[in-house]
Computed example of a mutant assay.
Amino acid sequence: MKIDRLLGIIVLMLNKGRVSARELSERFEVSSKTIYRDMDTISQAGIPVVAYPGLSGGFEIMKSFMIDRYWLSVEEMGSLFTAAKGIHQALGSPETKALLDKIQNLLNKAKVGRIPEEDHMAFEPLIMDLNPWGQREGIREQLDLLRACIAQKQRAIIHYVSSGADSVVRKREVEPVSLILKGNVWYVQAYCLYRKDHRLFRISRIEQIKLLETRAQPRLRPQLDALSWNSVWSEGMPCTVTLRFTPSARPRAADWFHPERWIEAADGSVVISTVLKVDEWLYGTLLSMGDTVLVEGPSWVAEELSRRAKKIAAQYRNLDT
C-alpha cells in the first residue's frame, strides 16, 4: 500500500539520514520514478525533504526538522509502549530493546508537567505479555536464526516434524519471509523449494535450522495481515456435538464456549451442544480432560473416544503393581 511505503520511507530517513533513490526503489520494490513521486507527496505533507545530487547523493529530511512528538497523545504513546514491551518480552532482541527505550523516552518527555494524581498513565492500564507459558526450550534461539535469515534474505535447511499419521521428519530447503505469532504459537511463513509454494511451518516442530549462503530469490507471496484459519488444515467433518462438563470442568467450558450456549443441569454440570469439526485436535482435547467431560452425542464420536481411551489403558496393563 502507498501509505505504508510513505511511512516506511519517512522512518528510514529519520533513522538513517541520507538514502539514495536506488536503495529506496530496491527496498520497497518500486521504480525510481515512483520514489521521486513519493518524495513530492512527503514534501507536500509538510515534511521537508532535501535532494542531494552526485554519487553520494540521495534524499534526506532537513536536519532542522523534527516530527513533533505531540502528533501522538500520551495515551497513544502509552499504547505503543505496551505493544513494544510485549514484543520485546517475546523476542528479547537488542533491536526491540532499543525500540522500547526510544518509546519510553518519548513517553517520559510527553508526561512532563502532568500531576501524578491526574495521570492515569502512571500505572499500566493494559499489559501485553507475548512470551507464552510452557514454551519449550530453544524457541527463542530458533526465532533469532530465522529473523537473521529473513533480514539477510538467505535460504535455510530445516528438519521439520510433519503432522498426520506418519509424523516423519522431513528435510526442506526454504526461504523464510515472515514470523507470525498466533495466540501462543510461533510460525514462520517461508517459500518451500520442494513444494514450490509458500507454506507455514510451526516453529516448535522444527528440529534443526541451518542457514545457507545461497540468497533467497525475490518472489510474489501471499500478503498476511493476520493468520486466519484455513479449513483445509483440518480433515474433520463438522457435526453437532453434545458435551456434558462436570462442575470441576466449568472453567474449561468457559474457556471455549460463551455462557449463553450453556444449559445448567441440576447436579451443577453444564451441557453444551454446538457444531464442531471432529478431528484429531478434538479427540486429543477431550481425552486430555479425562472423566470431567462426557460426549453425549453423536454416538460414533463417543465410541471412537472410548476406543482411543481403551488403547491408552492397554499400554499400562502390564505395569508392575
Rank of each mutant, 00 (worst) to 15 (best):
K2F: 05
K2E: 15
G8L: 04
I9C: 06
I9H: 05
I10F: 05
M13V: 05
M13G: 06
M13W: 09
V19I: 14
S20F: 02
A21H: 01
R22W: 05
L24Y: 04
M39Y: 11
M39W: 10
S43R: 14
V50S: 01
A51M: 08
G54W: 00
G54K: 01
S56F: 11
K63E: 13
M66E: 12
D68M: 02
E76P: 03
L80V: 08
T82Q: 03
S93K: 03
L100R: 07
K102E: 07
K102I: 05
K102G: 09
R114T: 14
I115V: 14
P116T: 10
D119K: 02
E124A: 15
P125H: 07
P132V: 08
C149W: 06
I157D: 15
H159V: 15
K171N: 15
R172Y: 08
V174S: 08
V174W: 00
V177W: 13
W186S: 00
A190D: 14
L193R: 14
K196E: 03
D197V: 10
L212N: 05
A216V: 00
P218R: 11
Q223K: 13
W229R: 10
N230S: 08
S231H: 11
M237Y: 10
P238V: 09
P238A: 13
V241L: 05
T242S: 00
P259A: 10
S269W: 00
V271T: 06
T274W: 00
E280R: 03
W281H: 05
G284L: 06
T292Q: 08
V295L: 03
E303C: 02
E303A: 09
S306F: 02
R308A: 00
K310M: 10
K310L: 10
I312Q: 05
